[in-house]
C-alpha cells in the first residue's frame, strides 16, 4: 500500500513537470529554442529511434559505461577493502586520493588523448577515473563503518582473519557498498558527456554535444531523456540484485523493530 502511494506521488510530480514543460513554451512564457515543448522532444526521440541512430548511440555509450565502470569497480572494491582494513596503508594512500579526487573528468581529457590515443580507450579511461576514487573512498568508509564488536566477537570465537573479512566484514558492509555501487553508476553516466568529447563519433554524449553545436535543443533533451531512462533501467536492475543479496536484512529489521 505504502509502495503504491509512493509510486502514485512520483507519477503525479512527473506528470506535473511534463505538463509545465509542454505548456511553458507553447504559452510563450519560455523561448522554445531554449526549451522546446515536450511533444517536440518526444517526436525527435521517436524519429531518432525509428532511424536506428538512437540505438547505435545508446549501445556505444552503454558499452563505454559498462567497461569504464566495470574496471573502476574491479579496481576500487578490493583496494578499498584493503585500505579500509589496514590503517597504515590507508594513511599512505590518503594524501594521493585527496589530491586526485577533486579533479573533474574533463580535466583528464588531454592526458587521456596522450596516453590512450583516440577511440573508445580514452572515453573508457575518463569514466574510470571519474568513478574510481569515489568508489574507493566509499568502500574504505563502508569497511571502516562495520561495527568493531562484530569483528572482535568473530575473532574471539576463533574465526581466522580471512574468515572474518569474508563472513563478517563483507556482509556487514554490503548494504552500504550496494548503495555506493548504485550511486557510482549514476556518476558513470554523468562522465559519459566528458568521455565522448574525445574523438568518438557514436554515443549519447556525442549526440548531445553535436546537437548543441547545431542548436538542436530537442535532440539534446532527447539524448538526456535516453541517458536518464538507461540510468533508471540499470538502477532498477541493481535494486533487484540489492534486494536479493540483502534479503537477510528484512529479518534483521523485523527483529530490531520487535525489540523497539
Amino acid at each position: 500500500m505504502r509502495l503504491r502511494l509512493a509510486r502514485w506521488r512520483g507519477g503525479v510530480l512527473l506528470a506535473g513537470l511534463l505538463v509545465c514543460w509542454e505548456s511553458l513554451p507553447r504559452l510563450g512564457w519560455v523561448d522554445p529554442i531554449l526549451l522546446p515543448p515536450f511533444s517536440r522532444v518526444a517526436g525527435r526521440l521517436i524519429s531518432l529511434a525509428l532511424s536506428g541512430d538512437l540505438v547505435q548511440h545508446a549501445v556505444a555509450s552503454l558499452g563505454r559505461v559498462l567497461a569504464g565502470y566495470g574496471l573502476a569497480l574491479a579496481a576500487a572494491l578490493p583496494l578499498g577493502f584493503f585500505l579500509g582494513l589496514s590503517e597504515p596503508a590507508e594513511q599512505y594512500a590518503r594524501l594521493a586520493v585527496q589530491l586526485l579526487r577533486p579533479l573533474s573528468p574533463p580535466a583528464w581529457i588531454p592526458l587521456a588523448i596522450l596516453w590512450f590515443g583516440i577511440g573508445n580507450a580514452p572515453a573508457i579511461f575518463i569514466i574510470f577515473v571519474g568513478t574510481f576514487l569515489t568508489l574507493l573512498t566509499g568502500t574504505i568508509a563502508a569497511v571502516r563503518g562495520v561495527d568493531r564488536r562484530l569483528v572482535q566477537a568473530a575473532r574471539t570465537l576463533g574465526c581466522s582473519r580471512r574468515g572474518t573479512v569474508v563472513r563478517v566484514v563483507l556482509p556487514a558492509a554490503l548494504p552500504e557498498l550496494l548503495t555506493l555501487i548504485r550511486l557510482g553508476l549514476g556518476l558513470a553516466w554523468m562522465c559519459v558527456m566528458a568521455a565522448e568529447m574525445v574523438a568518438v563519433s557514436r554515443g549519447l554524449g556525442f549526440l548531445m554535444l553535436e546537437a548543441r553545436n547545431l542548436f538542436r535543443t530537442d535532440t539534446v533533451l532527447a539524448g538526456m531523456l535516453t541517458v536518464g531512462s538507461l540510468g533508471l533501467l540499470l538502477d532498477g536492475l541493481l535494486r533487484l540484485v540489492q534486494g536479493r543479496l540483502l534479503r537477510w536484512q528484512v529479518g534483521r529489521k523485523a527483529y530490531e523493530m520487535s525489540r523497539d
Binding site: I113, G117, I118, M197, A199, F206, E210
Partner: peptide
Amino acid sequence: SLVYFQKLGDMISALKTGQV
C-alpha cells in the same frame, strides 16, 4: 576518416602525438 573533437587544443595534441 574524420575524427571529431570539441577543442582546438585537443586536436593539436592528437596531431602532435600521432593519433591523427
